[in-house]
């Protein structure tokens, strides 16, 4: 009888031991799963995800707004067809045509005063090289007559430009004066002490390098 009791006790012990081990293993698995779940749900990773989303959305929104503004600004300032690309390089208050900048005065003065005023602006009274240029100046001058760079010592001397080059007789100069000016009729001349508005011109430094490639304004 005592042998049987001893056997039963040992079997019981064995049962308990095995059960405990198995349960422990199960608990370990559960903990592992728990850890995984916690990691996926953890506030840190969630916040990071939200931040990523937020940043991407903000960046895209800013891009869309910027592009919209750029488009609206662009439409307000249309590109001019056949515009001289060099015009933009003229100083404020000057008008560009071809490779030159022209200034039309508001004040009046005699020819010498006009030339001095142009020299003070690092330029000289206007020269024209072509009929197109002359037509442009006539159109732009408005109703008032303007001194230009043509002059001569007397009615018997040849016409020369303000830069001391000889006039090519491109256009007939009428009138009986010693100084040339632009009128509605073309080029006329008056006495040097009379008062008129004037036109200065200078060349644009950037335009000079592009002279061969600059298209004529039609």
């Amino acid at each position: 009888m005592s042998a049987v009791k001893i056997e039963e006790a040992s079997v019981d012990k064995l049962k308990i031991h095995l059960t405990a081990t198995a349960c422990l293993q199960e608990e370990d698995k559960g903990k592992v799963l728990q850890g995984k779940l916690l990691r996926s749900i953890s506030p840190e990773s969630r916040v990071k995800l939200h931040c990523c989303y937020g940043v991407v959305i903000v960046v895209l929104t800013v891009a869309v707004v910027a592009l919209s503004v750029a488009l609206s600004v662009r439409n307000k300032i249309p590109v001019m067809e056949n515009c001289e690309p060099c015009s933009a390089t003229c100083p404020s208050g000057w008008i560009g045509f071809g490779s030159k900048c022209f200034y039309f005065s508001e004040d009046v003065g005699n020819w010498t005063f006009s030339q001095s005023s142009c020299m003070a602006l690092d330029s000289h009274l206007a020269l024209f090289d072509s009929l197109e240029e002359l037509i442009f100046l006539k159109r732009y001058k408005g109703p008032s007559d303007h001194w230009i760079g043509l002059h001569r010592a007397s009615t018997k001397h040849p016409w020369i430009w303000a830069d001391d080059t000889e006039y090519s007789n491109l256009v007939l100069i009428r009138g009986g004066g010693q100084c040339g000016f632009l009128s509605d009729n073309g080029i006329s001349s008056g006495r040097d002490y009379t008062h008129r508005k004037w036109i200065c011109n200078k060349s644009s430094s950037i335009c000079k390098s592009k002279l061969g490639n600059v298209p004529r304004h039609v």
Binding site: D145, G175, G177, D184, G190, T194, H195
Partner: peptide
């Protein structure tokens, strides 16, 4: 005779004004 804002000038009669 040519009248201006300050004085009366003598100009060429052939001039445009």
């Amino acid at each position: 005779a040519l009248i201006s804002h300050t004085e009366v000038f003598s100009d060429s009669c052939s001039s445009d004004n």
